[in-house]
């Protein structure tokens, strides 16, 4: 099986997953308490008024018609109109999406850049001070709650030292990167002052997890028969470690990275709350408490699609790292 066919197969599976998500999200409204009419109608609305609202929203049609209508709307990029926020759901969701993606990618970057070298260093210096330091760090990192870490970082670096901003997002990452490209360093640095703390807060758990995974994977690989055989043929230790052992260590690491990034797309609710980060997580919470069904549905679908897309990328990476995946 070629790589293209493999990805096509996974892509088709992804389409079915998304369809499933859409269906569940659509039905969610009918199996949870509270109906959209009561949210919009005044408390003392007459039955006639309520019927008129239902007809206006199309809620008096049969369920399958509403479902098909919703599907057709989604295919056209229409997630429905939110009477609560008085705007289209897609406008609200896509206004929040970039902030979430930005934070998720930044946190993942922090994690990858720190954790993989740390894990490798830890494994290749087993039972030495570096290893003890790294394992202690990952234990602490895994067990520190996000909200506490976020608040502490704000207290220390934003309030006490004043290096970073306490909350908010500033400019978009696209503008920050174009500023960097045009040599406008001040703009880029100001962007960094917003994103650094939330990225570290969100990335710490992640870093700790991947450090552990890399360390234990690397130790396994370094003790394996093929690594011994690779040493026996006289290869320099650099190649034994990085060309052979690390590459195979990365296979499970990539899987976990993908899954984690997928959950981050759902929004890091706590971190977003601590830093008042305008992401999808806060939008989801707000639409639940405000009974803004249309926005909630839209957010969940976008999150589902994001998850599927990331898994597709992970599959492609996986196939690149492990040739057995494609040929079986």
């Amino acid at each position: 099986m070629s790589l293209a066919r493999f990805l096509l197969k996974r892509g088709l599976q992804g389409v079915f997953v998304v369809w499933g998500v859409v269906t569940v999200v659509f039905l969610l409204r009918f199996i949870t308490p509270g109906d959209p009419i009561s949210v919009i109608a005044p408390l003392d609305a007459s039955p006639a008024t309520r019927q008129a609202i239902a007809a206006e929203l199309g809620l008096n049609r049969p369920l399958y018609v509403q479902y098909l209508d919703y599907l057709v709307g989604l295919l056209q990029g229409d997630m429905g109109y939110s009477y609560i926020s008085n705007t289209s759901a897609s406008a609200r969701v896509f206004a929040r999406l970039p902030a979430t993606l930005e934070l998720a990618v930044a946190a993942t970057l922090v994690a990858v850049v720190l954790s993989i070298p740390l894990g490798v260093l830890s494994a290749t210096n087993r039972n030495e001070p570096v290893d003890y330091g790294a394992t202690t760090f990952s234990l602490v990192g895994i067990s520190t709650p996000n909200f506490w870490l976020g608040i502490m970082l704000v207290l220390l670096f934003a309030v006490e030292f004043g290096v970073f901003k306490t909350s908010g997002r500033g400019i978009t990452s696209a503008r920050a990167l174009s500023a960097l490209a045009t040599g406008n360093l001040d703009v880029f640095v100001s962007w960094l002052t917003y994103i650094t703390l939330p990225a570290i807060t969100l990335g710490t758990y992640f870093t700790a997890l991947i450090t552990r995974l890399t360390r234990s994977g690397m130790l396994d690989e370094l003790g394996s028969a093929y690594v011994r055989a690779t040493r026996a043929k006289g290869l320099p230790e650099t190649l034994v470690r990085y060309r052979h052992a690390l590459r195979n260590t990365l296979i499970p690491v990539v899987t976990v990275l993908g899954l984690q990034l997928g959950t981050l797309i759902g929004g890091a609710v706590i971190t977003e709350a601590v830093f008042a980060w305008p992401g999808l997580g806060t939008l989801v919470i707000n639409s639940i408490t405000g009974r803004d069904w249309v926005v909630l549905q839209g957010s969940l679908i976008v999150i589902g699609v994001g998850f599927v897309l990331i898994n597709l990328v992970v599959d492609a990476l996986y196939a690149y790292l492990d040739p057995r995946v494609v040929s079986d």
């Binding site: 394996s224 028969a225 093929y226 011994r228 055989a229 690779t230 040493r231 026996a232 043929k233 006289g234 290869l235 190649l239 060309r243 052979h244 590459r247 195979n248 296979i251 790292l321 492990d322 040739p323 057995r324």
Partner: peptide, 29 residues
Amino acid sequence: RGPGFSTVFQDPMSSLNPSLTVGEQIAEA
């Protein structure tokens, strides 16, 4: 290791790296 001594191990399945081609691994040696 290589010009003086080289080794053929018991289990060839686990003694070669599964994610590199056989030719590449011999070429390394």
